[in-house]
Design a protein around this nucleic acid. Sequence first.
DNA 1: ATAAGTCTTTGATGTAGGTCAATATGACGC
DNA 2: GCGTCATATTGACCTACATCAAAGACTTAT
Lengths: 246, 246
Amino acid sequence: MRSGSHFAQTASSNPLVNSPCEKCNVAGMSLCHALSCDDLKKLSSISTAVEVGKGVTIINEMDPADFLFNVTGGSIKLYKLLPDGRRQMTGFLFPGDFLGIAMNDCYAYSAEALEDCKLCRFPRAKLEALLKEIPDLENRLLNMLSNELVLAQDQMLLLGRKTAIEKVSSFLLALSKRTKSKTGTGDVISLPMGRSDIGDYLGLTTETVSRTLTNLKKKGIISIPTNGQLEINDMEELTDLAEGMD
Amino acid sequence: MRSGSHFAQTASSNPLVNSPCEKCNVAGMSLCHALSCDDLKKLSSISTAVEVGKGVTIINEMDPADFLFNVTGGSIKLYKLLPDGRRQMTGFLFPGDFLGIAMNDCYAYSAEALEDCKLCRFPRAKLEALLKEIPDLENRLLNMLSNELVLAQDQMLLLGRKTAIEKVSSFLLALSKRTKSKTGTGDVISLPMGRSDIGDYLGLTTETVSRTLTNLKKKGIISIPTNGQLEINDMEELTDLAEGMD
DNA sequence: ATAAGTCTTTGATGTAGGTCAATATGACGC
DNA sequence: GCGTCATATTGACCTACATCAAAGACTTAT
């Protein structure tokens, strides 16, 4: 058991907090975006705030998909496994992101907390009932899914056709863009995941990720002041590298 | 200009046919699935039946996404390009599939007809208006998107972590499964796309796809009676190969 | 502070699949 | 049927990245 965890139980068994949506720090950037006060109350009534510690598995691929989640704090990695243990990260989640899409009522991937996390949990059946009641909510979900699908297709292009340096550059840029859209600046980004997580996201090995980052450092394009944090010094060059324009 | 094309114009400029949804051959497996007669009429009223010839580009990545489509006949390839021409197929569409998801009002990929195709075309603005009117329709779209997202994640696992033989086996199995769900049997599948299309879908080269297929033929797992058609002789073995259980 | 464990970096070597090039096969028009 | 063109196959060779192995650098516990 990891000692760094402040919270020990799994997400579905131990809701430590049960705060209403009104206080939510991600309202307006998330599922609840642009809901009327009334609708927000309805959503609030079926949701439970949950906290999970770093390293805790939040959902397991193939388990019945009884809950959906909205991330309100921390960061999460999503992944799928092959029988022999090979792993593919399908995404990283940050506050505002949605978790829990399923097929045949089972989760399509596993999710693990990269840091201590806060989540807003919805029973699937209740959320689905609410979708029929609140068209705005359904519409919002539709838009989020459609965006995710576009990103998934970008990732296919990356995985299938980009070189190691293009992959790493694209990854850093995507994180930067995300950070910028929230904080206004995307020059310094946080890297809560390890090298091997990044490798499994980009279809590379830990070693190749590390070598590629050193390479970018040597060229002066990035610096890594502390592990877990990265600074982009030459955004233009990184952008060119990401698209193979070199 | 290709001589094999029966239809010369692009999809958005030349609706040759304008038949109502009532006659549609894919109703019940598509967007229009489970709509009431009344709702179907509304949907019908904003749709235009369109035919495009083999090789015609139906939509272009980055063009304004003015239309959405439902495939009613033929097959289509979807792809994204890098500046230097490297290509990643993001999917193949068959009757019943939906085409046209976008981000920032622009198409996220290009689409080209693999064979002469029939499509059902909806102006985006009108369809979006209709979504608000018909919750069932929105719900249906939500389910379709969510399924597509799950498939996209499977494809990430394939692209990032599978070997050539696992990729090709998985691809054939996926086509087989699709065929089976429609026709009842999945032992013989049609391959309307060329080797290089398959390669660009699997993150491989034409040559590697070809070598891998001959490999599978030599092992007796598949046969290729004519180009454009493929028979699976040992489904079990192919399934094991697809997941790396060998 | 120190020890133990984990994660990252760096180096040496191997290989799956890419690249380049030469046939072979099939589709279509005449 | 015959020539042309596009696509598929096969072979020889190469390279980007993986694998294997050995230091460093952090982290946390005592």
